[in-house]
Design a protein around this nucleic acid. Structure first.
Lengths: 355, 355
DNA sequence: ATGAAAGCGCTAACAT
DNA sequence: ATGTTAGCGCTTTCAT
């Protein structure tokens, strides 16, 4: 297996030479320009076949001063949600002859800005940004300043410059409130990440308003951590340690659901007997555990589809005011939601060892 | 917010003009070539600052005939494992001044080949391929044929052309076998995806050999689905319906663990009282559920790190025979592993409704 | 119907 | 120490 210098790939000139025409003609043939003599076209195709020629899209883009590249920036790639978003965006971009270049900001606004800068260096045609915080982050500002073409998704509700596409958090949370109120819950803990800006606010408000409308007496405690998950875990732990005993927990984001579960474990509380749980964001495992976990499912595919549609319209020159689109969620009621128990047995405070 | 044509970004010539030097000099300054008069360098920096100039890396790559782009191809982006792999690769590539372009093959070899073709069109400097099946898939062949630079990871053990980096499946599975044998399990069901080639074979053999060495009487049933997960689910269902009652299930891949759990649910079996469960591949949720799920943790970070290290060495011209690297896994014993029960109570055959 | 020439934004020899 | 020139691989007038 000789490791020799790989034979440089044939260029358009190699094809031209072989076909006995000029590079310009080859280019025309490749683009289906009809003013080429059939015979020459045939020779070109033959040469292309023989050499295995494939055009370099980047060189082509350079010359046309228009890159067929879409950038996607997401807070993380490890989650089902964003992984799925990126997968869809990838397919949608390809369908239009574009290549998606995805990058993850690791929940850091500095990195987010850094990545955006690199995408602008690449002169991408457009960007799908799922900001770490919300539309007011540094990335959004950069996009405005640079006059970039882009769409924002997920942790945004609307923006004064860019089209936005996100889940209808307000309605979804309202539905959750309805479900809990119906079952007689009158003390609910809501947990979330404050950093996620407008989005978390909508989820919170949707819940609060509906809950208060249905049962003005309902006690709603809210625990928000400004930035990361661990402080939130601490806050929840404190909260329970103070003796607070809500009958249900509503987590506004996936990791919060995990944290809630693990805090229940620590205290030996079982779902839904000791406490009910509902999470924003569904995951595959939630339907196979005991109990299965109730969740709000975000319409990933529709979010991706509409984001791309808006983006391509803007790339194609559509002007007009930014549109803010909200896609409806589904609420999956599963076993983790029960009735509140009246007599509150003190849960045994053993902490289960995890190996 | 005028939507006017965005002001074209300044080119190196704009900077040159403004600084009163040639483009070549600007280029030198940007690359830290020391033979530039300090004063001129200063003027260039000033012009760069004023114009907000940033070089176009793609144009630069074109001229140098060397792209600072690494391609990554993974079977899916929705899983923690590959999401995490890609995230790490991204950072590692950046650290060397490269950009990672990731794509997902959706577990399809056709798509895998298609993506690889596009990456070759892009003239990427190298490719990290996590093949759908194993090193013998079409993508590997293409890479060989094209003389591409690349590294294979995950579902491979070794290759005759390319460096490979993967988890030490054999040892990990042996450890699982030891644990189960120690606890007295004498009838184990192993489930996996046949398509995943050498990798699954290693996981299976590692288990089988050790188990048989420790307890020649141990009964090991194996259910492999050739391609996708759903047929496997069917096979498992049939298997249990026939009255088979292994005391433990060992899943060779993440989705299999989910399937096993959901089949347990259908039958109302609880873990580990009715049956024990161990899965290859860890996930965040596995430690917060009741019971927590025992799992083999793949060394994601090390796999990514070594893959990139090998890749860059090859890009930098290292020759020599391909290296096959195996990274050790950790085995997390959790609550889903118990002792086998002698008297086998017939589990109630209710199927739990999932909404 | 075709090709020569110019050039996208950049870099690398080579002069000076 | 700097600028001129040529050209990476491609596309696009614009003559012919």
């Amino acid at each position: 297996m000789a490791k020799g210098a790989q034979p440089k790939r044939p260029s358009i000139h190699d094809v031209a030479r072989r076909a006995g025409v000029s590079a310009a003609t080859v280019s025309k043939v490749m683009h289906g320009v009809p003013t080429v003599k059939a015979e020459n076209a045939e020779r070109v195709f033959e040469a292309v076949r023989q050499l295995g020629y494939r055009a370099d899209p980047l060189a082509s883009d350079l010359r046309r001063s228009k890159r067929r590249i879409i950038g996607a920036i997401v807070p993380e790639l490890e989650s089902e949600f964003f992984g799925s978003i990126v997968t869809h965006l990838e397919r949608l971009a390809e369908r239009r002859g574009y290549t998606l270049v995805a990058a993850s900001s690791g929940e850091s606004e500095e990195r987010e800005a850094e990545i955006l800068r690199r995408m602008e260096d690449w002169r991408v045609a457009g960007v799908v940004l799922a900001p770490v915080r919300d539309e007011h982050g540094p990335a959004g500002e950069m996009m405005r300043a640079q006059g970039m073409t882009g769409v924002m998704i997920d942790r945004v509700l609307s923006d004064k410059t860019f089209d936005t596409v996100s889940a209808d958090s307000l309605s979804a949370s309202a539905e959750v409130a309805r479900e809990l109120a119906d079952r007689g819950h009158r003390h609910v803990l809501v947990i979330g990440l404050g950093e996620q800006g407008a989005c978390v606010r909508a989820r919170l408000e949707g819940f609060r308003r509906t809950a208060e409308a249905l049962d003005p007496q309902m006690r709603i405690d809210v625990l928000l951590s400004e930035s990361s998950v661990e402080p939130l875990r601490g806050a929840i732990r404190d909260y329970f340690s103070r003796g607070e005993r809500p009958t249900a927990v509503f987590s506004l984001f996936l990791k919060g659901t995990l944290v809630a579960l693990s805090e229940f474990r620590r205290r030996g509380w079982h779902c839904p007997d000791d406490i009910s749980l509902i999470g924003f964001d569904d995951a595959e495992w939630m339907q196979v555990t005991w109990p299965s976990i109730a969740a709000v499912v975000q319409p990933v595919e529709r979010i991706a589809a509409h984001a791309m549609e808006r983006l391509f319209r803007r790339i194609d020159g559509e002007t007009g005011p930014p549109m803010a689109r909200l896609e409806p969620c589904r609420f999956l009621v599963r076993e983790s939601i029960g009735m509140p128990r009246q007599e509150r047995r003190q849960g045994p405070k053993i902490s289960v060892v995890e190996t």
